[in-house]
Design a protein around this nucleic acid. Sequence first.
DNA 1: TTGAAAGCGTTACCAG
DNA 2: CTGGTAACGCTTTCAA
Lengths: 335, 335
Amino acid sequence: MSGIADVARRAGVSKATASRALTGSTQVSDQTRQRVQEAAAELGYVPSTSAVSLATGRTRNVGVIMPRLNRWFFAEVLEGIQATLLRHGLDLTLYDARPGTEGRRRIFDDFLARKRFDGLIAVGLDPDDHELERLLRIGRPVVSVVGASADISIVTIDDTHAAQRATEHLLALQHTDIAFVGGGTETPWQRVDAARYEGYRRAMAAAGHLPRHIASPTSLPGGYAVAVDELSDARRRPTALVAVCDEVAIGAIVAARQLAIPVPAGLSVVGIDNHEYAEMFSLTTLAQQPRDQGIAAAELLVSTLGTAAAAPVEHRLEARLIVRNSTAPPAAART
Amino acid sequence: MSGIADVARRAGVSKATASRALTGSTQVSDQTRQRVQEAAAELGYVPSTSAVSLATGRTRNVGVIMPRLNRWFFAEVLEGIQATLLRHGLDLTLYDARPGTEGRRRIFDDFLARKRFDGLIAVGLDPDDHELERLLRIGRPVVSVVGASADISIVTIDDTHAAQRATEHLLALQHTDIAFVGGGTETPWQRVDAARYEGYRRAMAAAGHLPRHIASPTSLPGGYAVAVDELSDARRRPTALVAVCDEVAIGAIVAARQLAIPVPAGLSVVGIDNHEYAEMFSLTTLAQQPRDQGIAAAELLVSTLGTAAAAPVEHRLEARLIVRNSTAPPAAART
DNA sequence: TTGAAAGCGTTACCAG
DNA sequence: CTGGTAACGCTTTCAA
């Protein structure tokens, strides 16, 4: 447990010089620096983070707040963030703000106020007004992944555009009876879901077709359950599905197989994500790279840490269409 | 940004008294306490964590270190830990120590040494000797989930026993040609995988059958790919599979369906986990509750935070057999 | 029950 | 380029 005083003594300099030599900041003769560094190494000196924070006002720590951890998207974003922060020598404090829980309230009302971090990354939070106010009041830079807000920097894909391209892909294959699956079953739509539905709706409208919505929880079992219900009646069945995300899309494919509906011959399905499982289900999808979004968000935050509050930045990554084998022209078009 | 000095002034007391009144520790007259608390509330006083840490030596923060974030098991454990720590008002600092990465090395060699936490929870780490030594050297209580070590408290299920019971379930159905799927494709087995294989082996040996091992990556697509290969030849095909975890089991079920092998009529599959997707695939499995393991680990750690180093505790949760519709007697037994 | 003052381990200012 | 010393914001003796 040796402190900087021990290092200084061993190197034969003052605490001040030792500190300078180790933080690398100001001018120190190469000789002294060398001696101090050696002394530090020999003693296995590790600065006390709380003392450093108290003195500098910086924590070398970043807060990450997300509504779920066990969804593919969030876990990937988190891994990207973690790897990036690690590379910068920054710690990561995680807040799991599950919507509607007492824990979420405490996070926003108590935990964030402690400012244990130099900056915050909010992933897919969909904060209400009160929460957003709390977020801004902290007075630390905030970067958001997914979601949107006037005065917060953001990294995301263009959800509306992605869903629109997914729909257009099906339209180009001559589908006309295309349903949108997703949106959740509880009342208020998530911002993302709404944006994606809007893209679908636009593409359908442009092609002169009526939109059709199948409500589904945003999960693989959710998509499965809904699809089992909705696909069983062959007469009412759409010829193609735009799923709000790959998990729902894969659920629908599993359901279709269960019902002996051949995919893509009898039903086309397109998702958004390029989920870890997309390939094994031959899912056509719009690939978003959540890990890259995490990396981008972390880099963006890190770059603003030193500087004064800059204007919010908007960083949109492109979602690329990956055509696999879950989409094909509808049976009718192949007569 | 008011400090405790402001609170003290406003309440008309000294910093010392204000501190006592707020931390609740020592004797303060109810009247003063009340006045101080009001003053604090009015000013929106939030103690500086670094100052508190520096003065007390405690961080009110717990470190969590795991090898992956985007696997169902780990995400569930993490959610359990997070929820529990939150309830205790503790922060959570996350370390993603992916095996074989430079990041992992830095975590063990640099990040942990900073001791930003009062205690550490290690989940499924499988640390090597060097890493284990680092873990112990920190001088903070450590609780491990999964894995094993002489001098670290641990929360886990009995993996060997679970796999044994899974195998016995198949044996009771008259299966004799049962293969174990898992273990990864890289050379060194994970401790968990080895323990589960051992349970399978014992059950097979006790019944007088030869064990059979199908190597598979520990993931759903991994199980799928391996199963597509291994199940295609009807003559060499086992009648039942014990999968190292549900993800592999589900991969195998998807593969079987793909190959038009009816489950369970043509192939029985049993997993270990009770994964989120287990129900929709009708998977028979040994349920472990990773979330509960996370909760138990966090509670255990919290309880030891105040006290002096106690003897390591071992907390084994039971894995319950859930019979669904992926297991049935082999075709031969049904003549 | 309360107050004054001495740390906690660094950094950063101000002289030299 | 280096040393002494005052913060940083809180807790915790020690006295009163």
